[in-house]
Simulated assay, not measured.
Amino acid sequence: MIRMLPGWPTSPGCFVWWKKWSTSTCVPGGVEVLSPDCGWPRVHVEADYSSSAGLGDWLSIELSLGTVGTSSLEWKFAVFHSERPVMRGRYVVVRVGKGGKPQAIPESERECLISGFSKGGDACK
């Protein structure tokens, strides 16, 4: 759970959390996302807000892996306040090589991501 911080009512706070998480060195499941050979820039973000949350409210965020493409990952997220939906959205990143061109996700990483999420993130340890 995270807590609503000052500034969140006027800016999508989930994206603040998401940016911090998405710039870490690993995605859930332990697959390295930042290395000398590749990166994962964001190419699409969308969200639909269904209700509000206030300053100081505790929010729960659910994250799930959506579509795994040849070079892209779709992450789906939902934000809740006291089990009441506040926001749902999706986020797409693309694996790129040193030259900035899309690069296929290696099969071992693909399997790790897919099985890691279906087994609670333990498949890649």
Score class of each variant (00 low, 15 high):
2 I>L: 02
4 M>N: 07
5 L>V: 11
6 P>T: 01
6 P>V: 02
7 G>C: 06
9 P>R: 10
9 P>E: 05
14 C>G: 09
15 F>P: 04
15 F>D: 12
15 F>M: 14
16 V>D: 11
18 W>C: 04
20 K>N: 05
21 W>Q: 02
21 W>E: 08
22 S>N: 06
22 S>L: 00
23 T>Q: 12
24 S>H: 05
25 T>L: 01
25 T>P: 06
27 V>Y: 15
27 V>L: 14
29 G>S: 14
29 G>H: 13
29 G>D: 07
30 G>W: 11
31 V>N: 15
31 V>Q: 13
32 E>C: 15
33 V>S: 15
34 L>R: 14
34 L>H: 15
34 L>P: 02
35 S>Y: 10
36 P>M: 05
37 D>T: 11
38 C>T: 04
40 W>A: 08
41 P>Y: 13
41 P>F: 10
42 R>C: 15
43 V>Y: 09
45 V>F: 15
46 E>P: 09
47 A>K: 10
49 Y>N: 12
50 S>M: 12
51 S>R: 11
51 S>C: 08
52 S>P: 09
52 S>K: 12
53 A>L: 05
55 L>A: 05
56 G>K: 04
56 G>N: 15
56 G>S: 15
57 D>H: 09
57 D>T: 04
58 W>G: 14
59 L>N: 14
62 E>T: 13
63 L>Q: 12
68 V>I: 06
68 V>N: 06
68 V>T: 04
69 G>S: 07
70 T>E: 11
73 L>T: 04
74 E>A: 03
75 W>S: 10
75 W>E: 10
76 K>T: 05
76 K>G: 02
77 F>A: 07
78 A>M: 05
78 A>I: 05
80 F>H: 11
80 F>P: 02
82 S>I: 06
83 E>Y: 03
83 E>I: 02
84 R>I: 04
84 R>N: 15
85 P>I: 06
85 P>D: 09
86 V>Y: 00
86 V>G: 01
87 M>E: 13
87 M>P: 00
88 R>H: 05
88 R>A: 06
89 G>V: 03
89 G>I: 01
90 R>M: 08
91 Y>W: 14
92 V>G: 11
92 V>C: 10
93 V>K: 10
94 V>C: 05
94 V>L: 02
95 R>D: 00
96 V>H: 05
96 V>P: 04
97 G>T: 03
97 G>S: 07
98 K>N: 06
99 G>F: 00
99 G>M: 00
100 G>P: 01
100 G>F: 02
101 K>I: 03
101 K>S: 12
103 Q>I: 00
105 I>V: 08
105 I>P: 09
106 P>G: 01
106 P>T: 04
107 E>N: 05
107 E>H: 04
109 E>D: 12
109 E>V: 02
110 R>F: 00
111 E>Y: 00
113 L>K: 09
113 L>N: 11
113 L>E: 08
114 I>H: 14
115 S>C: 03
115 S>P: 02
115 S>M: 06
115 S>A: 08
117 F>D: 10
117 F>S: 06
117 F>H: 14
118 S>I: 13
119 K>C: 08
119 K>S: 15
119 K>E: 15
120 G>F: 07
120 G>W: 06
121 G>K: 08
121 G>N: 10
122 D>P: 00
122 D>T: 13
125 K>H: 00
125 K>Y: 04
